[in-house]
Write a protein that binds this DNA or RNA. Structure first.
Length: 1010
RNA sequence: GGGCGAGUGGCGGAACGGUUUACGCGUUGGUCUCAAAAACCAAUGGGAGCAAUCCCGUGUGGGUUCGAAUCCCACCUCGCCCACCA
């Protein structure tokens, strides 16, 4: 051993700490550079040999950036909530916070022993109440924006962890953490609506510099697919024998398909076993069979259901639907190859052009109709030209997709639809070691009014507020907390437009409370409402089967027999007041138009005029099987309107006031989840029972905690201002430091942490809490370090390498350099303890060079130095650390061969070495009389002239085969080089004829073609 | 089954249209030593030859090119991610 690494490591680590030179500067004039690595989970196992790979890599980048004059933020902290610690606490009966504190001490000692240039003054810990206060605060922003909601839903339940898991945490049907069995269970869960951001999470990928494979993986995970939603009506059957057409009209099955062009080939339908319609549509004589099937498939694990190779199973319901394009009666089946979680939970099966449908149809002998022309046997999934598709024959798949979707929309039988694989984020954990969700539930507040909104309802010609759906709509809206106003219009049997308008204006002006205003109008009242929308600023306008367009003579012709002359006049009177669609677009926040599919008054012509007039600014809702409602058709309520109105009454969940944050974790005796699956917090009565911040009455705290993705979704923001107790970070500081310039982490976090974090930041951005919409400007990924046997390192395999031992034996710099030299940064590489020795030899050699420092420096050494500056600089930027190290080794070998180097030359080399081996580099710098830190020196710039070779080896080929090499001076002309090449004896030997062509590549080769 | 990536000495890997194997490990020989370790020097893809030199070599088979590890096509193997996504 040439140098005492323990002495040198301690000395420099101590000096760096004392001096604080790695602290990021506040209000600096320098260009900022925020460089981030994923903060570790401080497990009991200590630092894994893989951790230092990315920490050293970005340490090199951070150190180089500092030497280039940048103000660098390179922080470190602890992502410490979660199951490993909790499970350990349960096993040993210790407190999770004590275990965490201990683990952090170990991790921190280990990281410090590597001489990483973290700004330790900004250390954070997600389990620190001062930190999770802000995690809770941010969760409340989601809650207050309506993006956090509690819903009873089937969740993945890990039987051994006794906790719910996000879809993303289930790997091949097993728990990602413990590998245990996962089953479906219904539980009330807090959800966060990440799907609302799905499109932006895809689109904004174009604005950031992530590795292409990371972008692709995120895109695929979000899984946007465009297609159509198609409505299939049920065929009249025993269900309708009571003659209740209303029920039938409601019962239709909506499916999502990416291949609407194959609709003519849809020969049967399949519902997922969990589909809510299954129980409703099953025919009496199929009940037993269907029930048994549904029951058996609910017991299947995801693995069993997810096996595509497995034989298809399913049962017939006895019911039929109508294919909307050709009126064919098609059977409805239940089968578990259709998943409730994707699309609508129901499919139209096109056996000729879908492999799964084909397998199913073959097994159950269902008809197969080919609708895309092509060669080869069925099923064929490729696109082509339509056949057997009626009027659409001959169109290509692409054309037909557009055409048929338009046709479906026109006919009210479907619409364009977009579907995502991404689901909303299950945010609840029934566990102790996580941030408590800062909400309380108050029975007293449940149902209380939360805000004021006015709704005015206007009926149509010959209608009244007693008829149609008005009474039920009013009751529903009142229940939801709206102020509802409705009046019988004057002369409803013979309405006069101006009279109605004046009446409506007077009623609105004299009754409205000043709260946001909504107008709902039906038929002629719809026309009236549209005209009112030109006059009032509305939050929302709802038009139910509105007249008021400008129909043609032909339109009126149809009614000549049914309308009297007087009635005709009335209709015309209204039509003479055309709607100003642009004014509506300007005045109304949200326009919704409801059309009945079988409305004899509201024809295609009228619908189109509304569609064109309002365009994309309005949403159009097609109601299945409903006619016009203006003549007291006996319709008692209309779900389509009611579902547009959210409740203004509290559901009883109340946010803990900001002043009461954080909601701290209480002490508990035992950390196991309870048998009911509730969090252990549920048994701490003192903690659970609390006072409602709104009404002062009794309330109960939410006992679920957050997933550990919560704290890690925003930690990069906290590093910017880690000690702020007024806000999660100061807005000015956020402006100074965001976004993170370079973020490196593992590929395994691409679809979990990275996606959540981007979403979280986008939400904060939308609410004005952070200045940029994308948190990370650049994202790269490191490869895994495998054990020497090529397997993953794990305690159970007994192949774990301990970094402490290596630092102890060889020193920090040796380990750092080996981590970089081991292989291409992004690829998985096996560890080799044998290889480490070579790095130590290299550093020993560097140490001996100090004694070879002299006045004289050979041209060769100078040239090698500049080549090294060039290569190391560019290699660091492109993360090719292995070749950067190799180049430095080559350089040291050259110096050895040449017998010495000048002092400035050696100092320049030490500057290059410093990011890789900072202890050795600083020590040598000091021993040679350098003052202060090498880190304060400037990053060297290479000189192209000095780096250029003076003599070049030129390969000489005949017909592409190497026959000789010649050495020429740099700058020798082509003619001379060729002549020299030709003069070579061994070249001449192979030149049986005159060359027909001579290839000359300057500085590289000459090739004689004969 | 799909997507992505990768196959180069004994090993980790360089090279990514121009002299295959930089750099490191290992191995062999040598120097030093009573000896060993360490260090240093030299050699190190296979085959033929005293030698100059030649032939064969980047998973396999084709193709493009004056020239292919590198580009294209097909196949094989391995790794990672996803997996009945309609």
């Amino acid at each position: 051993m040439k140098y005492d690494h323990k002495l040198i490591d301690n000395k420099w680590q101590g000096r760096w700490e004392e001096s604080g030179i790695f602290h990021a500067e506040e209000n600096s004039k320098k260009e900022k550079f925020y460089c981030l690595v994923e903060f570790p989970y401080p497990s009991g196992a200590g630092l894994h040999i893989g951790h230092p790979r990315s920490y050293t890599a970005l340490d090199i980048i951070a150190r180089k950036a500092r030497m280039e004059g940048k103000n660098v933020l390179y922080p470190m902290g602890w992502d410490a909530f979660g199951l490993p610690t909790e499970n350990y606490a349960i096993k040993t009966g210790r407190k999770p916070e004590d275990v965490t504190a201990e683990n952090i001490i170990t991790f921190k000692r280990q990281l410090k022993s590597l001489g990483l240039s973290f700004d330790w003054s900004r250390e954070i810990n997600t389990t620190d109440p001062a930190y999770y206060k802000w995690t809770q605060w941010q969760f409340l922003q989601f809650f207050k924006a309506g993006l956090a909601y509690k819903d009873k839903m089937a969740i993945n339940w890990c039987m051994s962890c006794k906790t719910g898991l996000a879809n993303e945490e289930v790997v091949d049907g097993a728990c990602e953490r413990c590998g245990g069995e996962v089953e479906k269970r219904n539980k009330e869960q807090w959800m966060i609506a990440i799907t609302k951001y799905a499109d932006r999470l895809i689109e904004d990928l174009d604005t950031i510099d992530y590795l292409p494979k990371i972008k692709k993986q995120q895109k695929d995970w979000i899984g946007r697919s465009e297609g159509a939603e198609v409505i299939f009506k049920l065929v009249d059957s025993t269900l309708s024998k009571g003659g209740d057409r209303e029920v039938l009209a409601r019962d239709s099955i909506s499916v999502f398909t990416t291949r609407p062009d194959t609709l003519f080939g849809a020969t049967y339908m399949v519902l997922a076993p969990e589909h809510p319609l299954v129980s409703k549509i099953v025919e009496e004589d199929h009940k037993v069979e269907v029930d048994a099937y549904v029951k058996s498939s609910s017991k299947k694990t995801e693995i069993e259901r997810g096996d595509a190779q497995k034989e298809k199973t399913g049962v017939f319901t006895g019911s039929y639907a109508v294919n909307p394009v050709n009126g064919e009666k098609i059977p409805i089946w239940v089968a578990d190859y259709v998943l409730m979680g994707y699309g609508t939970g129901a499919i139209m099966a096109v056996p000729a052009h879908d492999e799964r449908d084909f397998a199913f149809a073959t097994k159950f002998d269902l008809p197969i109709v080919e609708v895309v022309a092509g060669e080869g046997s069925l099923p064929r999934t490729e696109e082509g030209t339509a056949i057997n598709s009626g009027e659409f024959d001959g169109l290509t798949t692409t054309e037909l997709k557009v055409k048929i979707t338009e046709w479906l929309a026109q006919e009210g039988k479907g619409k364009i639809a977009v579907n995502f694989k991404l689901r909303d984020w299950v945010f609840s954990r029934q566990r102790y070691w996580g941030e408590p969700i800062p909400l309380v539930h108050c029975k007293n507040c449940e149902g209380a009014q939360t805000e004021q909104k006015d709704v005015f309802l206007f009926h149509g010609w010959d209608g009244s507020t007693e008829g149609d759906f008005f009474p039920s709509l009013k009751a529903d809206l009142k229940k939801k907390g709206y102020n509802v106003f409705m009046f019988n219009a004057p002369n409803a049997e013979e309405p006069v437009f101006e009279e109605w308008l004046a009446f409506a204006r007077e009623k609105i002006d004299s009754n409205r409370t000043g709260a946001p205003l909504t107008i709902v109008g039906h038929s002629m009242g719809g026309h009236l409402s549209a005209k009112l929308a030109e006059l009032y600023e509305l939050e929302r306008l709802v038009l139910v089967a509105p007249v008021g367009a400008q129909p043609s003579e032909k339109y009126f012709d149809q009614y000549k027999d049914t309308l009297t002359e007087d009635e005709f006049k009335i209709y015309k009177d209204f039509q003479d007041h055309p709607i100003d669609f642009d004014a509506i677009k300007k005045n109304v926040g949200d326009v919704r138009v409801i059309f009945g599919m079988e409305d004899k008054w509201i024809t295609d012509e009228i619908r189109d005029q509304y569609r064109v007039g309002l365009g994309d600014s309005a949403q159009f809702v097609e109601i299945n099987g409903r006619g016009h409602l203006s003549t007291n058709a006996g319709v008692t309520h209309l779900e389509a309107i009611e579902s547009m109105f959210d409740s203004l009454k509290s559901n009883g969940w109340v946010a803990v006031p900001d002043s009461d944050l954080p909601v701290k974790l209480p002490d508990v005796e035992r950390y196991e989840p309870t048998d009911t699956g509730e969090s252990p917090l549920a048994v701490i009565k003192d903690w659970v029972n609390t006072i409602c911040p709104t009404c002062g009455g009794h309330a109960r705290r939410e006992t679920d905690t957050m997933p550990n993705w919560a704290g890690s979704s925003w930690y990069f923001l906290r590093y910017i201002d880690p000690h702020n107790d007024k806000a999660f970070a100061d807005p000015e500081k956020l402006k100074e430091w965001t976004p993170v310039d370079w973020y490196n982490g593992g590929m395994e976090h691409t679809t979990l942490h990275l996606l959540y974090s981007r979403f979280w930041n986008k939400f904060l951005y939308d609410r004005g809490h952070v200045p940029v919409s994308e948190p990370y400007a650049k994202r790269t990924s490191h490869g895994l370090i495998l054990a020497e046997d090529g397997e993953k390192m794990s305690k159970s395999r007994g192949n774990v390498v301990n970094p402490d031992e290596l630092v102890e034996k060889f020193g920090a710099d040796t380990l750092r350099i080996y981590e970089m030299f081991i292989g291409p940064f992004a690829e998985a590489v096996p560890w080799s303890t044998n290889g480490v020795i070579g790095m130590r030899r290299f550093l020993d050699k560097v140490m001996t060079i100090k004694d070879a420092v002299q006045e004289f420096e050979s041209e060769k050494v100078t040239r090698a130095l500049h080549q090294t500056i060039k290569k190391v600089t560019t290699d660091i930027e492109s993360m090719r650390f292995n070749t950067a190290v190799a180049q430095m080794m080559t350089f040291v070998n050259v110096v050895g061969d040449e017998g010495g180097i000048s002092k400035p030359g050696f100092e320049t080399f030490l500057t290059l070495l410093c990011p890789f081996a900072p202890h050795v580099a600083n020590e040598l710098y000091e021993q040679m009389g350098g003052v202060g830190f090498l880190e304060a020196c400037e990053w060297p710039i290479f000189n192209e002239d000095l780096a250029a070779e003076k003599e070049l080896n030129i390969a000489v080929q005949v017909n592409g085969k190497l026959r000789s090499t010649i050495v020429v001076k740099a700058g020798t002309g082509e003619d001379e080089v060729v002549a020299l090449a030709r003069a070579e004896e061994n070249v001449d030997k192979f030149m049986v004829t005159e060359p027909s062509k001579i290839i000359y590549v300057p500085g590289k080769l000459v090739n004689f073609v004969i």
